[in-house]
Design a protein around this nucleic acid. Structure first.
Lengths: 146, 146
DNA sequence: ATGCAATCTCAAGCTGACTTGAGGTCAAGC
DNA sequence: GCTTGACCTCAAGTCAGCTTGAGATTGCAT
């Protein structure tokens, strides 16, 4: 609650490695909040460093900002989260990682079968299933491993 | 070498589940080649079905079209690849999958440590390393797990 | 021979995740 | 009190990976 707990955007940028513009963009997207000084400058909570760390890790896993925002929704907004808050959300992320590892492992197994025959065919190996993508319409970047 | 070995774009689209427009785009990007009929219509090799299957699988792994194009470079262009050609390139893909699984596993281990203390901090856990991204400049979608 | 689906080209649009630039304000040190 | 750097707001640009649309042509089936 101390005044020292509020940091300007540049400091947050240095601490996270993010560009200032990126942080502003995240705020606009609703991934974090800030208060303003008398002179209209943003001030963030120190704990937002962690918040942004989470964003970065989740992005590495291929999550989109919308999904990350959802996950962050379980954290208290505008208040420093507790250790327990972070443990909960970290576990959710862990689940996501597990799922991806499983998917990759399955893909690898299928590919191994295919290497044997050298076919790499949709029909025969079912490595790549047409039906999967039927629903996933729309433009924009493809989603990684579903 | 038979005339039957040449298929129009719509057939290729149906066989791969891709949109016709996507195939045209891939050709423009140099991921495959086609010959033209007298009336300027594209004709593809039957083996391009496999070629595109490979593209789709590699995309699922998060590879960009540029990298996929590189990988495909080891295949003969405009000629039906042999079983051995496919085996070679499949193994390369398998290596890529292995690398990703390892990376995910490491990330998960680190996250596990972090769940213990609930910190999720850049400095303390080094789950997310600033230096990693220093070189990865430029706009556009972030690369998944490096 | 004709009709209709499939194909062609080319330009423009779109999503996600940002960056860049212009033009202006704030604040801390000297 | 003045300079210098950090900060502000828009609007517009960028990149990947496509899609959409307009307007014209082709080619198989009857």
């Amino acid at each position: 609650m101390n005044r020292n707990d509020l940091i300007p955007i540049g400091t947050l940028a240095r601490r996270t490695g993010l560009a200032v513009s990126a942080i502003r963009y995240y705020e606009e997207r609703g991934l974090l909040q800030s208060v303003r000084t008398g002179g209209n400058q943003r001030r963030f909570l120190r704990s937002d460093i962690r918040r942004l760390s989470f964003v970065l890790i989740a992005q590495k896993l291929g999550l989109g900002l919308a999904e990350i925002e959802q996950a962050l929704g379980t954290l208290p907004q505008g208040r420093t989260p507790t250790v327990l808050d972070w443990q909960k959300i970290s576990r959710a992320l862990r689940g996501e990682i597990d799922r991806r590892i499983q998917l990759l492992t399955r893909t690898r197994n299928k590919l191994d079968e295919c290497i044997g025959c050298g076919c790499l065919s949709l029909d025969r190996c079912a490595l790549y299933n047409k039906e999967d993508r039927a629903g996933a319409a729309g433009p924009g970047p493809r989603f990684v491993l579903d």
